[in-house]
Write a protein that binds this DNA or RNA. Structure first.
Lengths: 142, 142
DNA sequence: GGTCATCTGCAACGCAATTGCAATAGACCC
DNA sequence: GGGTCTATTGCAATTGCGTTGCAGATGACC
């Protein structure tokens, strides 16, 4: 790995860290980049599987996820399968709370659904997040 | 322990098992009785802690919880702490079918919502469970 | 380039959930 | 009541997520 290049290559992610008063490290940039490149929330396990190939330790992935989530750069959500998933929060993170997730009981993947897929009657509370558990289309058809 | 007495003493629980074509065993009756005596859903750990004192193995508790839940005698729900909890379903368990629940991010309590509170567009998959996260009415008003 | 707090890798642990296997107990028939 | 056969149980072990201690490496800052 070439730490210097990794750092130089992500000015945007770097500034995110600096704004929160967090140290800019190769590992943190890698975590942010991986989550930013994913279209769906990732678990620590999924992310670690990906990042250990670069020599990063699973515990380091874990601790960085904690730090970044605490700094509100990531959203940490326990999905209905009991596993925490993390996603990058763009600008205050409003956009990502609005679409429902489906956690597939067969393949385990988290699918983001279009916002209008689920409608919640008003007056029940301030609903921030909608999670479904079931079988996704791919698994039903397979 | 006196297996014979345990069995003879629970005609109602016994018939529940027989109706589902399940074998009536001392251990199953003990699990049903313990859950029936509890006012709140219990985790496998809590139940096992209680039942190991009678010589039952934790794995046996676990497998019976699975069997009984599959037979719809119990409801198995993953609570927001990530741990499954089990409760006895009275009268066929129809009431507990597929109602959404709201996990309050403020007070942490789980509120059961009426089934019609959430509608899911068909064709997205086979939805088994609906979980909302947000603030419950009590916290909004408090 | 030096200093010091923070971060990282390595190793290990706790707990919930799960399974294989051999011994046991329940259901059923006589 | 005794025999038979399968489901159940106890024991032991494993997986996987989440988490932490510690010693060495690295980043921030001067």
């Amino acid at each position: 790995m070439t730490p210097e290049r990794s750092k130089a290559n992500h000015p945007r992610l770097r500034s995110l860290l600096e704004q929160r008063g967090l140290r800019v490290t190769v590992r943190r940039l890698a975590v942010l980049q991986a989550l930013g490149a994913s279209r769906r929330p990732l678990s620590h396990g999924e992310l670690a599987d990906e990042l250990v190939t670069t020599g990063m330790d699973r515990a380091t992935v874990y601790r960085n996820l904690m730090v970044l989530a605490e700094a509100k750069l990531l959203l940490r959500t326990r999905m209905p399968d009991g596993i925490f998933r993390f996603e990058l929060l763009r600008q205050g993170g409003r956009a990502h709370k609005l679409h429902p997730y489906l956690v597939c009981t067969e393949c385990g993947q988290v699918r983001c659904l279009p916002r209008q897929a689920v409608s919640v009657k008003p007056g029940l509370g301030d609903v921030l997040e909608v999670q479904l558990r079931g079988r996704c289309l791919a698994c039903l058809q397979g």
